[in-house]
Amino acid sequence: MKIGTYEIYSLTSAILFAIGLGGVFLAKHFLRKIIATIIMGAGVFLCFVSFAKRDALTFADPIPHALVITGIVVAVTAAAFALSLARRIHKLTGEDTFGNEK
């Protein structure tokens, strides 16, 4: 397989996704878990954008960009919500991990 720009992007996106997925499960601290989900998101969005320039097309496909913009908005909202939850938990109990429970 020839390694071109497209392959590099795709591989990077898969690696980012895997790093994020691992991080959510392995990290203990709320902040780390939330950042891991953001990294997962970055992988997915990179994957989407890299598909905009496919071999068959001579121009960049605009639809993935529109989708990624929407996806980013949703991801930012979810991350902000998660952060505010984590902050409230810290304020109420002083804890910043889920503790012993899974």
Partner: peptide, 19 residues
């Protein structure tokens, strides 16, 4: 967090299908 993982996995699949 579980739901975000779920939707990111779903979106990854959608990206592959669109691609």
């Amino acid at each position: 967090l579980a739901a975000i993982i779920g939707s990111m996995a779903y979106l990854f699949g959608v990206a592959l299908i669109y691609g």
